[in-house]
Write a protein that binds this DNA or RNA. Structure first.
Lengths: 227, 227
DNA sequence: CTTATAGACGGAACGGCGTACCAACAAGTA
DNA sequence: TACTTGTTGGTACGCCGTTCCGTCTATAAG
């Protein structure tokens, strides 16, 4: 616990060596021994540090899962919509902070099917974590479990949508796009015990209910003050 | 093309042998040579037939992708909602028809992390296929690409929700539950050029917009007649 | 009937992954 | 100094998935 500096640098050197070699020769043409040799350690040490060749690419996965869980556990009924948005934002921010490293990983994963599978497996873990909380929060609604699963999928999908746009340099303001994406995704969420004063709404329009509901959602969000 | 009977039985014997051994000793404790020996063929033949040990579990994947693509390609603007629902139903029906084999696979996949990753990879392929069509259909809407991705995720998630309930014996009428799940998932879809006669809606209720919209959606669905 | 060509098959060998085991070595403690 | 504790590298092993090659069978041509 106190030897972070030395231990961290060994792992970091392995990660750096791995990315170098992957970009030089490709993933499949790089052996674990190659990586270890360039990092100046033995092959055994490499597997002790990462467990598998794929793990070099996705190291902070468990950390992010933990942070999401914390954020969702801290939500009160009134702040759940916000908690969902912020928990998702934690992941986005993490990749934004990585900068070029995240883009290198994106290129790599996109070109190696085995890594794609690994990545989607990780994404699924996020989704299941969100679903676990949402099922609890929405179980009283009609089709609550289904709607919880759908919203969990939507949150993850919306996050990936914005993240991929940033990774491909298709946006200069990912945070704003993320806000909008969360707004759309959270159309599926309605606060649980909230019983607001009844309101008369009269509409004369050809807009579909979905469009109307999209317009009204921000009002509902604002009604739930953050703690 | 005409040697289906002999070729099919070899593959089928390998699949049968594989499932037997997986249930007897578990996935990891079963080698490719074990499977081949029990099926009465050589190890080389096994890898020629399936390419990898995982592939024995998910053989008809490409077939299903093809059928979905066909169904979506055949949709007209007026029948797209129905096409989405039916294309998804193709997958559900496939597993329902498999019966006990599907349940054996479910137990197996649930207990072996490597197979889980493989399965989610397959699911992601379905999702991407749906998204490809939906992006085309919805690109004119505000946030069209995002909404297309979300709906694709919802369709796949809704399907998996019902399928898993059936796999766990939590439902006796998966088709009806699937209808309802599709209804909820398709709340995200609004037909493209549809410009219905305007309607005045007066509501005095404490229900949220999302709930109201959920109630109204069937009316919209009925407006798009099937060809 | 014989020969030729193509395709399915099994065997052997190879590189690589991930694991298990072991010996060497450093650092802190009695 | 001796003893633990933990990290490291080396060796060996089983298995995966691929490649190469020789064998067998079947269908067609001569």
């Amino acid at each position: 616990m106190s030897e972070k500096p030395r231990s961290a640098t060994t792992k970091d050197r392995l990660v750096a060596a791995a990315y170098e070699l992957f970009e030089e020769r490709g993933f499949d043409a790089t052996t674990a021994e190659d990586i270890a040799r360039r990092a100046g350690v033995g092959r055994t040490t490499f597997f002790r540090a990462f467990g598998s060749k794929d793990d070099v690419i996705f190291p902070e996965h468990d950390l992010l899962l933990g942070r999401i869980d914390e954020r969702l556990a801290a939500a009160t009924p009134a702040t759940r919509a916000l908690a969902l948005s912020e928990a998702t934002r934690v992941v986005l921010r993490h990749y934004l902070d990585e900068g070029e490293l995240a883009r290198a990983r994106y290129r790599l994963v996109g070109s190696v099917p085995a890594l794609r599978a690994r990545e989607t497996g990780g994404i699924q873990q996020y989704q299941r974590l969100f679903a676990r909380w949402l099922r609890e929060w929405m179980s009283h609604l009609p089709d609550g479990h289904l709607r919880a699963d759908l919203l969990a999928a939507d949150l993850v999908t919306a996050h990936n949508y914005v993240l991929r746009r940033w990774l491909r340099d298709q946006t200069s303001d990912p945070e704003s796009e993320f806000d909008q994406a969360m707004r759309v995704a959270l159309e599926r969420y309605q606060p649980s015990g909230l019983e607001p004063s009844s309101t008369v709404v009269v509409l004369r329009t050809s807009a579909t209910p979905a469009a109307i509901q999209a317009q009204l959602q921000p009002l509902l969000d604002n009604e739930a003050p953050l703690s």
